[in-house]
């Protein structure tokens, strides 16, 4: 990574928090940085809202795009085209 990690000693800004939110969500941070994130989150409602909606974004994208109920059966002409092309090439 090219971005330097924020120093755990200095106060985190909302910008720092959002910039490294992916590591926080994936639980991939050094413990002292995680503590700094958690204390910022405890005091900052805006970042709490951001964190929640960031996670919600991932969840809702997954739920909407992996909706298997939309799959249905393959159109018969597509099945035929696939079977024909495999036969032709084997």
């Amino acid at each position: 990574m090219t971005k330097p990690l924020p120093e755990p000693s200095r106060e985190l800004t909302c910008r720092d928090l959002i910039e490294f939110l992916d590591d926080y969500v994936a639980d991939r941070q050094p413990p002292e940085l995680r503590v700094a994130f958690e204390s910022h989150l405890a005091e900052c409602r805006h970042c709490r809202d951001y964190l929640r909606t960031y996670s919600d974004t991932i969840a809702v994208a997954r739920a909407s795009l992996c909706d298997e109920s939309r799959a249905g059966a393959l159109p018969e002409d597509l099945v035929q085209a696939i079977v024909d092309s495999v036969r032709r090439h084997s």
């Binding site: 809202d49 919600d56 909407s64």
Partner: peptide
């Protein structure tokens, strides 16, 4: 370092939205 536009959290959970 604060965000420019601030909004509330979403009205519904991902489960409700889905």
């Amino acid at each position: 370092g604060h965000r420019d536009v601030r909004r509330e959290a979403w009205r519904e959970t991902p489960e409700e939205l889905a």
